[in-house]
Computed example of a mutant assay.
Amino acid sequence: MSNLDTITLLNRLIVTTKNGEAALRAAASEVHHAELQESLEEYSRFFADAARELQASVEALGGKPKGSGTFDNTLHRTWLHIKASAYGRDEAVILDTVEADEQEADARYSDALTWSTPPEIHALLERQYEGTHQRHDHIRQLRQQLEHAA
């Protein structure tokens, strides 16, 4: 795989992580259970750190890293806020949106791991992929606890 291909792949993941960061921060602002809010905020910070690591890797390869997410994600976050308001900040509705976003991130990372990247990049991608899974599982567990408590 060429450096250009690796840079392109990493820039796609930067956009994914920046979108994830913003969407999780938006979701955290809409939930009312403190533990869930903190978990979403922590997950958002994880994606912010992941984006910075990916950006540094792009720079190390001589590329120009993406700096932000997509306009579509801005619309998506706006829709999340409207939907949350319309449903009385129903955390299940908010978490449905988070769940869909996480499936997209999982798919992007899963695809990235099939590429023949340099060993240090592959190790970074594996670590970030595992981090997303751990946090996603934690959010899922919290969701189940909230559903059983209701």
Rank of each mutant, 00 (worst) to 15 (best):
Leu4Trp: 05
Leu9Lys: 00
Leu10Gln: 01
Asn11Arg: 09
Val15Thr: 11
Thr16Ser: 14
Thr16Gly: 05
Lys18Phe: 00
Ala23Cys: 04
Glu30Ser: 11
Val31Ala: 07
Val31Asp: 05
Val31Pro: 03
Glu35Ser: 13
Leu36Tyr: 02
Glu38Ile: 01
Tyr43Asn: 06
Phe46Pro: 00
Phe47Ser: 07
Ala48Lys: 14
Ala50Gln: 01
Arg52Phe: 07
Arg52Leu: 14
Arg52Cys: 04
Ala56Phe: 09
Ala56Ser: 10
Ala56Met: 11
Ala56Gln: 13
Ser57Lys: 13
Glu59Arg: 15
Glu59Trp: 06
Gly62Lys: 06
Pro65Gly: 01
Gly69Cys: 09
Lys83Glu: 13
Ala84Gln: 04
Gly88Asp: 09
Gly88Arg: 14
Arg89Asn: 15
Ile94Gly: 04
Ile94Met: 10
Leu95His: 04
Glu102Gln: 15
Glu102Arg: 04
Gln103Glu: 15
Ala107Arg: 15
Leu113Trp: 05
Pro119Gly: 08
Pro119Arg: 13
Glu120Asp: 12
Ile121Phe: 02
Gln128Asn: 11
Gln128Ala: 03
Tyr129Leu: 03
Glu130Leu: 11
Gly131Val: 04
Thr132Pro: 03
Arg135Tyr: 00
His138Glu: 07
Ile139Gln: 05
Gln144Ile: 10
Gln145Val: 08
Gln145Ser: 11
Leu146Asp: 04
Leu146Arg: 13
His148Arg: 14
Ala149Met: 12
